[in-house]
Simulated scan of single mutants.
Amino acid sequence: MITRADVEQAARRISGLTRITPVLESDPKVFPGPVWFKCEYMQHTGTFKARGALNRVLAARERGELKPDVGIVVASGGNAGLANAYAAAQLGVPAAVFVPAAAPAVKVRKLKAIGAAVVQGGAEYAEAYQAAVKHARETGAVYCHAYDQPEIAAGAGTVGLELLDQVGGLDTVLVAVGGGGLMAGIAAAVEGRAKVVAVEPETAPTLHSALAAGAPVDVPVSGVAADSLGARRIGDIGFSVAVRAGVESVLVSDADIIEARQKLWEDYRIIVEHGAAAGYAALTSGAYLPGVGERVAVILCGANTDPATLT
């Protein structure tokens, strides 16, 4: 469980190390009320995850847990690995990143370029996770979870604090959900000030299924956004904050996501990965229908994609 106080502490801790990403207002009269894009895809390493990674590693150093010769370890097929490798590089400590054998080559190259030691093996994220936990246990490296750690989620939530400063009187925040770290952080940051709507692919409905079941449950994962929204279950932090804050969940199809991503390119020349387009897909598909005058923000959370897939 995290609160706004945790997010505020994270903001102080990472101040000056992350970018204050811009907000762009959408074209007028397209929706019943104003819509803003929070352009977090412009953050270091191309996703919001740099915020949580820096908060986690800095907090570990404050507690004396970070060993300069050992550093950190993370299991990630992509964005979390990039973010934590970046955070480690900023602090001058080693980073070991365990990834599935099928991890995208472009992301593996980026990891190595940042200076991370990349260990590939296993068919799925779960195997990389087990290997990373073993590495942490044997070496004393600080383990950085992709989404389900308080400092990771609180750091991600600083997006929400920035957004409130940039857009006054906000009613609703649409945010894509995989493991739920970003959603949890933002929901904690804006709790009592705006509602949060979680947007999930129909092919990976982690929060939607957990809310229906009353607890986190495993779900089958597939679809165009699986590389970034491909967690098999919502994290405990994400679920607990969603229940406490009354987070709604809506589902979008792969076709909706593809169309929204294309529209962001055609209308605004914004290039994001499929997972990051999910929030906008809720608006363009009608999965979420804002009321007249409702002030809505969409978190565009990542841009690690191949532009050649846009037309």
Rank of each mutant, 00 (worst) to 15 (best):
G92F: 10
L91V: 08
Y288P: 02
H135T: 05
Q149H: 14
A117R: 09
A11L: 14
I2G: 03
R13P: 00
A126M: 11
Y280L: 13
P201W: 00
P28Q: 12
G52H: 08
A260F: 09
A215N: 06
K263L: 15
L264M: 13
L111R: 00
G52V: 10
V159F: 02
L229S: 03
A96E: 11
A153E: 10
D27K: 15
A95T: 01
A153H: 09
V190A: 09
R13C: 12
A260H: 08
V221Y: 02
H44A: 08
K67C: 04
E248A: 13
E273F: 04
V142I: 04
H274A: 15
A102M: 10
I114W: 00
Q43E: 14
R56M: 14
A215T: 11
A103M: 04
R295H: 09
A50T: 12
A225M: 00
R4E: 15
A187C: 10
Y125R: 12
A255N: 09
V30N: 07
H274Q: 14
I257E: 00
F31K: 03
L164V: 12
G115K: 02
T139N: 01
M183S: 08
S249N: 04
D267N: 13
N304D: 12
A95N: 03
V175S: 05
G181N: 12
V35K: 00
F98D: 01
V159T: 14
G291I: 06
G214E: 11
A245T: 01
D27H: 13
F98H: 04
V221I: 14
P68H: 06
E202G: 07
H145C: 10
D6K: 02
V108Q: 00
A297G: 04
A123D: 14
R233W: 08
A242D: 03
E65L: 15
M42F: 11
D171G: 06
E273D: 13
A101L: 13
S222E: 12
A50S: 15
V298Y: 08
I257K: 01
S249T: 07
V159A: 15
A188I: 05
A226E: 14
G168A: 15
L24M: 13
M1C: 09
A113M: 09
S285T: 02
T284E: 11
A131S: 14
D69N: 13
G178F: 14
S15M: 10
V142N: 06
V272E: 03
S249I: 04
E62D: 15
N79S: 08
V252W: 03
Q166N: 07
T3K: 11
A213M: 07
L161N: 04
L163P: 00
L289W: 03
A80K: 01
L24A: 09
P150V: 10
K38F: 11
A204P: 01
E191D: 15
Y280M: 12
A153T: 01
V197I: 13
Q120K: 14
I234E: 07
G168Q: 14
V252F: 10
T309I: 15
A141N: 01
V197C: 02
G16F: 11
T18N: 11
A184C: 05
Y125V: 01
E200M: 03
A210Q: 00
A89G: 06
D254G: 09
G230S: 10
L207S: 07
T203P: 03
E294Y: 03
L66Y: 03
R137I: 11
G92H: 12
K49Y: 06
A88N: 01
V167G: 09
K38P: 04
G157Q: 10
R19T: 10
V99D: 06
G181L: 06
M183L: 15
H44N: 08
